[in-house]
């Protein structure tokens, strides 16, 4: 009983952190589909989301719901500005140059965050109290975990609706499949890239805000979360939305079970080790499909 209880607890934690990774992975995927690059500034979107939330909710005592949406919009705006400025005007469109440009941009964002908020860890209040709810199996769950699941599911459903049903979503998918063909069909590719940066800004912010009450937040919390989100996206198959969810959950569970059952110091090593194994066996991720190479 004792043991199964523990396992249940690990699984709940794993799913929670996995949900966060899945949201972050979505952010990576959306930008990848629009541009083909890895946007390392995604890490900073997460930190900024958490810190905006902290400033509004704790320092300025704004209502949590309003703070949530303002922070989301704020980070989305930063994402859009990044695209409109440096990314769009970069003289080279080579992937590696653009990837390192996002690294440079994330240094600027992180440096600015450090100047504005300092280096201390700060807490954000939970969305609805901290009294744990006891589940029938004997495991306990904090309300924030439920919030994380609920918000993740909602975000996924909204994204699905957006990409499947709305005209703009379809245009973004068309851009992902073939930029040239999309442009020929009258889609403004530049605008789609712009939206993809704003979107992944918003997604990063959401991830940063919902995890902040559980693990405190600081100017650089996003780095490790962001890298794990990237790992989740790769694990599932880069660019694949269902893969992002699957990858996030697998990574979250691996980490939590690894920490609980094997060793908490090695939890990241275990997660990345499994990732490498999967990549070596299935080079395009679990749900990725092969691309034929063009000459």
């Amino acid at each position: 009983m004792e043991f199964s209880q523990q396992i249940a607890q690990y699984i709940i934690t794993g799913l929670t952190i996995g949900a966060i990774y899945a949201i972050v992975a979505m952010g990576f995927n959306i930008i990848h589909n629009a541009t083909g690059i890895v946007n390392f500034a995604q890490c900073e979107f997460i930190s900024l989301g958490g810190m905006f939330m902290y400033s509004l909710a704790v320092l300025f005592k704004v209502n949590l719901i309003i703070a949530f949406f303002i922070s989301m919009a704020g980070v989305a705006l930063i994402g859009a500005l990044i695209e409109m400025g440096p990314i769009r005007h970069a003289r080279s469109k080579e992937i590696i140059i653009l990837i390192f440009l996002t690294i440079g941009l994330s240094e600027i964002l992180r440096g600015t965050a450090q100047v504005v908020w300092g280096t201390d860890n700060v807490g954000v209040p939970a969305f609805s109290g901290e009294t744990p709810i006891h589940l029938p199996g004997g495991a306990a769950i904090v309300p924030q975990h439920i919030w994380i699941f609920a918000i993740t599911v909602m975000v996924m459903l909204m994204l699905r609706y957006f990409f499947k049903k709305t005209l703009m979503g379809k245009a973004m998918r068309a851009t992902a499949v073939n930029r040239r063909a999309a442009a020929l069909a009258g889609i403004s590719v530049n605008r789609m890239v712009l939206f993809s940066f704003a979107f992944s800004g918003a997604l990063g912010a959401v991830a940063g805000m919902i995890i902040a009450p559980i693990s405190s937040t600081s100017y650089d919390t996003g780095i490790m979360l962001g890298l794990k989100g990237f790992a989740a996206a790769i694990l599932g198959g880069y660019g694949n939305f269902a893969g992002a969810i699957l990858g996030g959950i697998i990574l979250g569970l691996l980490e939590s079970l690894g920490a609980g059952l094997i060793s908490s110091q090695y939890k990241d090593a275990i997660a990345f080790f499994v990732l490498l194994l999967v990549l070596f066996l299935k080079p395009r991720g679990i749900m990725g499909y092969g691309e034929s190479e063009r000459v």
Partner: peptide, 27 residues
């Protein structure tokens, strides 16, 4: 095995390898 990977998958594989080695150094 890594160099059979392409583009961003290779970036992730080498990144993951680096993180694993760094953790081992500490542990």
């Amino acid at each position: 095995p890594s160099l059979k990977l392409r583009g961003n998958y290779l970036v992730m594989a080498t990144l993951g390898f680096g993180i694993i080695i760094n953790i081992l150094m500490g542990e």
